[in-house]
Design a protein around this nucleic acid. Structure first.
Lengths: 343, 343
DNA sequence: ACCTTGATGAGGTACGTGCCTCAGAATTCG
DNA sequence: CGAATTCTGAGGCACGTACCTCATCAAGGT
């Protein structure tokens, strides 16, 4: 039988009340007594029963994901994972909700953040590009007692705010390395397509990509980033232009999570099989394109991990704990045709 | 407030006892009543509180990992993950233990399996190569009421037994594709090193590797698999021989989870930087070698995921549930220098 | 010596569910 | 129709912890 608090109290020679105070870090216990209890914990191998604790506490944490309105394939799978987590975490007394209110306009985003009430939500995971307005709104939100994590997009380490997502610099570098290795000795230009270079994520990916290319692959030169602004017509136009101006393009790096539009545009003016094309995020679309060979590699972050990690971080913060940084590091995944797995 | 069983009983117009019988699929309830309760569950959105249920049930499942004695780096990190899980799952009423008793001799393995007692263990995760003896011992173990999963090594889908690990055919194919792409137009031979080709895993990896190479990279030809039998001297000898006999070796595929010995042997007789070398499993050693460029890519399976997945499967089986196959699929990870992550 | 304060003990209730018993109601069978 | 059988309800204890109140005791200040 596992030792309980009662056993612990007996072993430490104190009462249940004192054990409780020590375990929950409440005041009113002498330093010496605290030490005695902790020693007893070690000695008898006491392990707190979290189920019982949560049950007794009867606390319910309510966390909310704030996502952009616009929806590419990646965002769609992200939403699915959140829905799944909602069900899974319900039995752990966590109520996960989701609101798709954020837009690219920082003012609107800030307004949405201002409407988040501490009475309704204990923590939020925000997926919105960095901007002064959003930063201020976030700070005010924290002051009102709501925990906040930056989700997928944001700047890790720069602010005293948790970040859940990949290191975009490394992600870009990974893409760069694969591009270089896959192209081998071939000489030519690399097309780089982004939705916008106004977001920190894009800048970092680009930086990582360029760093590797210039350091190790002098045979390749990356063109200036094309910005699509998420507009189909514009995408078609700028990509067609690039191929017209640079007949020696031998590869393309599609930086944003929506690969469909740029890849389709690219196919309209050139042959993807003759080039090395690397995109981001694993979706049904990118899987298909990997399988048929139109894409050569996909750099991805696992949506399920992202969601669960954000929830764990929010929970830790709400309970006043420090999240386990090592466990919450999101891996940069590489997919090629062969390791997609069945189905 | 979330509805409880009490609310559910009221909503369904039955007593708590009946609700309990329906929820736990116990007999003694009319079909009509069952339906009424289920409808009420839907209607009021009842979600079972697993914490409370586990607490009340007070059940403890005891699962055991049976691992080989011999210890390469991968096995070491695996052991670490099991230790971690032990602590983490304790609060979920799961007692995880570990025994390192299995050897390469199927008779000894079978004997070890025979010594597993249902009174002491509810389920075991076995990491041992396929063999008739092991198969029989496993079958008898199941008959004695102990749940069994094949762990990392084994044959997925072939037997009515759960398997937790990667699809080795795909893993080999992944290695093959990367080898081919990294080598580009270069012509030459590929060294293939395995601990032994007697295990199904090695055979499958080799098969997947060859399939890709012959289909898509006619410029490359893979040499017959070298078997090291885990012996340092032998490893040095066979590898030196190969390089002597085949001066046109331009790449190497190190198939087993212990990359150190073959890679060191390889470095003694040739320059790893002039070749494309792909190994398996992410360990401190392979990370180092990726960073310095001696390794070009590593195909890996996540030890933490493996352990947790095996535990989840065992738990599901013990409770008479079907494990969620989709969730327990282990990904084939690809690592290069850039996506190793900090640390 | 009196009062305040802090450190504990003792004991209770509550959390939501599992699981048991007992009694009564409904159904089936002879 | 009565007996046997099968359902169902009521109620209670248990699980391990949180959290509350009240009482006690010692140390320190005035």
């Amino acid at each position: 039988m596992r030792p309980t608090t009662k056993d612990l109290a007996k072993a430490a020679g104190v009462s249940l009340a004192t054990v409780d105070r020590v375990l929950n870090g409440r005041p009113g216990v002498r330093e010496k007594t605290v030490k005695a209890v902790n020693e007893a914990i070690e000695r008898i191998g006491f392990v707190r029963n979290l189920s019982a604790a949560n049950l007794a506490r009867g606390r319910r944490y309510r966390f909310q994901f704030l996502l952009p309105e616009a929806g590419d394939d990646f965002l769609t799978t992200l939403v699915e994972r959140i829905e799944e987590s909602r069900a899974a975490f319900l039995s752990e007394s966590l109520e996960i909700s989701m609101r798709r209110v954020l837009s690219n306009d920082p003012h609107i985003t800030a307004k949405a953040l201002a409407r988040v009430l501490p009475a309704q939500v204990d923590g939020v995971a925000i997926m919105a590009p960095e901007s002064p307005q959003v930063r201020d709104a976030t700070t005010r939100l924290k002051q009102r007692g709501v925990e906040v994590v930056q989700f997928i997009t944001g700047q890790p380490g720069l602010r005293p705010l948790d970040f859940v997502g990949v290191d975009n610099n490394s992600a870009g570098a990974t893409a760069g390395r694969l591009m270089g290795r896959f192209l081998g000795e071939r000489k030519g230009k690399i097309l780089v397509v982004s939705e916008t270079m106004n977001s920190l994520d894009s800048v970092e990916r680009r930086l990582g990509f360029d760093t590797v290319l210039t350091a190790d692959f002098p045979n390749l030169s990356a063109l200036p980033s094309l910005e699509t602004y998420g507009d189909r017509t514009r995408t078609e136009k700028v990509i067609a232009n690039s191929y017209a101006n640079h007949p020696d393009i031998i590869g393309a790096y599609l930086m944003n999570s929506e690969a469909r539009q740029p890849l389709e545009a690219l196919c309209h003016t050139s042959d993807p099989m003759q080039q090395v094309i690397i995109a981001h995020e694993r979706t049904g679309y990118t899987e298909d394109k990997l399988r048929v060979g139109a894409l050569d590699a996909v750099i991805a972050q696992n949506p399920g991990h992202l969601v669960r990690s954000a929830i764990r971080v929010l929970k830790a913060r709400t309970e006043g704990r420090e999240p386990l940084a090592s466990q919450e590091r999101i891996r940069i995944e590489i997919y090629i045709k062969e390791n997609l797995g069945q189905l």
